[in-house]
Each structure stands twice: as structure tokens, then as C-alpha cells.
Amino acid sequence: MTAPVDVKSLSDAELAAHLAEVAGRILLAVRDSGVFSAKALGKAGDQTANQFLVHALREARPDDGLLSEEEKDNAARLDKSRVWIVDPVDGTREYGEARADWAVHVGLAIDGQPVIGAVALPGLDLSGSGAGTVLRTDRTQALPPAPQKLRMVVSRTRPASEAVAVAEGLDAELVPMGSAGAKAMAVILGQADIYLHSGGQFEWDSMAPVAVAQAHGLHCSRIDGSPLVYNQRDVYLPDLLICRQEHAQMVLSLVKAIDKAA
């Protein structure tokens, strides 16, 4: 039996990382149980991981607000300075297909800013320990050297036309990938250089990944260059740019030119 964890004694970053990692293990156990059909697996995993995360956060941080993709929204969060924003399974299709490009997001926005976050990639076991990979705001790593040819991660099922146009303008290689969290972490891990999304998202899709990306020194903004703000009444957040700092202005200028020409 695992020793009890005093979650109230953990720092916010430690708590985010611990919960994301445990939720990832729960999701793997749900999938490996063999109980669910392919059609039912996504819902079962989402709901199971969500219940764990919601109850754990209410136990550990009872005074904080909470926004989860799998929970009914609550107006009470709007009056909170500290709001946890979680996505129990980002990339449900990839999770069901036992791919590596799905994630668990646990993040904390303070006064609307993405301050604390952890992104678990349970299907990507970089260490060989069998525990997957967790990237977090309190344990950063140096970015790998940038290659000569740029690489841009895009949706593996429906690449946004704007992102494809920017990739063409940069002569960048397209790297199809599943979840938003996996795409953002790919830039940190050196699997890509740019993640540009313009096809519509919600706050839980990007909050934790943005917090982690910013902690690693990456540029994070809307595609018009404006800041990303969270814990809004309308949780729809349509676009996102995460990239190495040296590419940001070039990408933003291309987006502006493409939009002007459209």
C-alpha cells in the first residue's frame, strides 16, 4: 500500500504534479482493466480521473476555486483569486488508442494568470521507469538545441488552415499530434519548435500547458500577441501560440499578414 500523502503540506506545484501523475496512473488502470468497450472507454476514463482530481483538490485546497472540463461550471470561481483548472483527459481519442500523445492537465491560475501547472504524459515513458512523464513549473529543464529546419505541431485529425499557412510561410515541417498538452510539451522536449492553434479551445485545454511552457522560458500568447487570461466567465479561448522565444515575432507577423490577406 502506498504511504499516505499529506496533500495540505505540499506546495501548489508539488500538488499539481502529484495529482496529475496519480490521475495518469488511474487512467492507465481503467484502460488496462479490459472492462470497457472502445466506445465507452473515453467517458469512463474522463469521469474516473475527474472524480479523483475534483475530490483531491477540494480536500487539499478547499478555499480555492475549481474549473474542470468534466464538471458543471460554477459562478463561485469568478470571485476567487486562486482557481484550479483541470482537464482529466486531454486527447480522449489518443488515450483510447493507447497512443503516447494524450495528457492530464492540472493548473492553478492566480488572478487570471497561468502561474502553476503540471502536465502528465502517462503514455510517454522517457525515463524507462514505467511511470510516464510529468512536466511541471517547479522543475524545469534546458530546451534542446533548435534544429535548422523548423517543426510545427498540428492536430493529427484537423490541422487548422491558419497553422498550415504559417508553416508554409516558414517552410516548417508539420508534426501531427493529438492533445494540446502533448503538443505544448513537444516544444519543451525538443520534438517541435512551434505550436500554433487557431481552431478553438477552452481554458482547460491550455492553462496548465501554458504555465509549464512559460516556466521553461517559452513564448505563450494569443495568436495576435495578446496575453492569455484565465478564469473568465466565458471559458472559450479560441487560439494559442507556444514557441521558442526566437521564433515568436516571426510567427506573429506571419499570422497578421495571413489574416490581413484573407
Results as ranks from 00 to 15, higher is better:
233 R>N: 13
54 V>I: 09
104 V>W: 00
123 G>H: 02
221 S>Y: 13
243 C>P: 04
135 L>P: 00
116 I>E: 00
80 K>V: 04
260 K>L: 15
18 H>L: 14
79 D>N: 14
30 V>I: 11
58 R>M: 13
32 D>P: 05
83 V>T: 07
238 P>I: 11
26 I>F: 12
94 E>A: 11
149 K>I: 10
43 K>P: 04
227 P>V: 10
258 I>G: 03
14 E>A: 07
191 Q>A: 10
31 R>V: 00
188 I>S: 05
188 I>L: 12
245 Q>N: 06
97 E>S: 14
91 G>S: 10
261 A>N: 12
79 D>C: 06
66 L>H: 10
106 V>T: 06
175 V>E: 09
40 A>T: 06
113 Q>D: 14
157 T>C: 07
128 G>S: 03
145 P>E: 02
66 L>S: 09
251 V>C: 11
44 A>Q: 00
80 K>I: 05
1 M>P: 15
71 E>Y: 10
218 L>R: 09
41 L>I: 02
70 E>Y: 06
194 I>E: 01
160 A>S: 11
123 G>S: 03
216 H>S: 08
169 G>D: 03
128 G>C: 06
216 H>E: 08
208 A>Y: 04
161 S>Q: 15
98 A>D: 15
242 I>V: 15
247 H>L: 15
52 F>T: 00
24 G>T: 02
203 E>P: 01
179 S>L: 07
154 V>S: 09
256 K>D: 15
238 P>N: 13
191 Q>L: 13
199 G>C: 11
153 V>C: 08
214 Q>T: 09
142 A>F: 09
211 A>H: 03
23 A>K: 02
80 K>M: 12
83 V>W: 00
171 D>F: 07
196 L>V: 03
61 R>I: 05
217 G>V: 06
99 R>V: 05
227 P>I: 08
37 S>F: 05
80 K>C: 13
7 V>N: 08
16 A>G: 00
24 G>E: 05
7 V>A: 13
22 V>M: 08
133 T>K: 05
210 V>G: 05
160 A>V: 08
31 R>L: 04
51 Q>N: 10
198 S>V: 13
104 V>K: 02
196 L>H: 05
101 D>N: 07
14 E>C: 02
204 W>H: 09
20 A>T: 01
7 V>L: 15
22 V>A: 11
181 G>K: 03
52 F>G: 00
209 P>C: 07
140 T>W: 02
128 G>D: 08
194 I>A: 03
104 V>R: 01
59 E>R: 14
243 C>K: 11
185 M>G: 03
241 L>R: 12
62 P>E: 08
16 A>I: 00
218 L>Q: 08
157 T>K: 13
25 R>T: 04
183 K>M: 12
168 E>F: 14
177 M>H: 07
82 R>L: 07
180 A>H: 12
47 Q>W: 10
177 M>D: 11
228 L>P: 01
60 A>H: 12
24 G>D: 04
9 S>K: 09
99 R>K: 14
95 Y>L: 11
44 A>M: 01
113 Q>W: 10
4 P>Q: 12
125 D>W: 10
111 D>S: 12
161 S>H: 14
111 D>Q: 14
211 A>M: 04
40 A>C: 06
106 V>P: 01
172 A>W: 02
177 M>K: 10
152 M>E: 07
108 L>Y: 01
77 R>W: 05
157 T>E: 14
